[in-house]
Design a protein around this nucleic acid. Structure first.
Lengths: 135, 135
DNA sequence: GAAAAATGACACCATGATGGTATCATTTAC
DNA sequence: GTAAATGATACCATCATGGTGTCATTTTTC
């Protein structure tokens, strides 16, 4: 059971790498050289981060990506959503087929409860907080 | 992202079904008739529950399973472990390949933290508690 | 102007976990 | 003896994930 997908993890690493270099253009090659992550996969991830507004892209030779958002505003939960979809521990596994017991299902209730706890904590984890934590 | 696998969910349903019938023998057919879950899959699940000591089995005609353990002692976390393996949100995704930063990895630390919270709450959820919650 | 180095946009593939089925042997009530 | 159950497994289909590859376009640099 992985809470974080690899893609999310890679994204975090990339952002942690770029955070101190704010304003600078960082290319996939830079990431590849320093972080040793699978390059084409990383490219895809950076493109997502760009579309989500975390990065701006610079095309052409000497191009790359630039960090747009303040590290304190980049929340882990949002990255997870971008790469893994909505985080819902508590969705009923059965779409109307089995249960019917939407209201009464005790499991659903307990897990939904837990979910809000998890989401709450994940919301507090930001890139800048992770940067501090690395010390 | 599913915290609970379907197998775990089925197991819970089966146990909730059997709990009020304690002492009685319940067969796969009974479960099948009343809970409308995929029968051969259910069989496999009951066998696991038996091997784990939750149920005893009665072979032959009119056979089935009998609930052994008190509903208050059956914890969701243990069922999850039985059907989904060890619940570890925080394992590093990379086995020595990428990181090296075992101590410093900030993500790892934060998630491990969250993990203990989740495990703690899951440990408190028992079958009997779910029975009450259904009211 | 041409080559090099970058992103944009996809299509594609391999693998593993999960959900689910099927089969055959054995046991036991009637 | 037959029906109805479990024991034990082998098997299969589907899907999410991780990862690769390709082609077009852009832009710097010479």
């Amino acid at each position: 059971m992985h809470l974080l997908a690899r893609s999310t993890d890679y994204a975090v690493r990339a952002l942690l790498y770029m955070a101190p270099k704010r304003g600078e253009v960082v290319s996939t090659s830079d990431l590849d050289r320093d972080l040793k992550l699978p390059r084409p996969f990383m490219r895809r991830i950076l493109q997502v981060l760009q579309k989500q507004g975390y990065l701006s892209s610079v095309k052409g030779h000497k191009g790359g990506f630039r960090l747009l958002m303040a590290p304190g505003k980049i929340r882990l939960i949002d990255l997870m959503r971008a790469f893994q979809g909505e985080i819902s521990l508590g969705d009923c596994l059965f779409k109307k087929k089995v249960c019917g017991c939407v209201k009464t299902c005790p499991l659903r209730h307990e897990i939904k409860d837990l979910e809000s706890v998890v989401l709450g904590r994940l919301s507090n984890i930001t890139i800048s907080r992770l940067m501090q934590g690395a010390s």
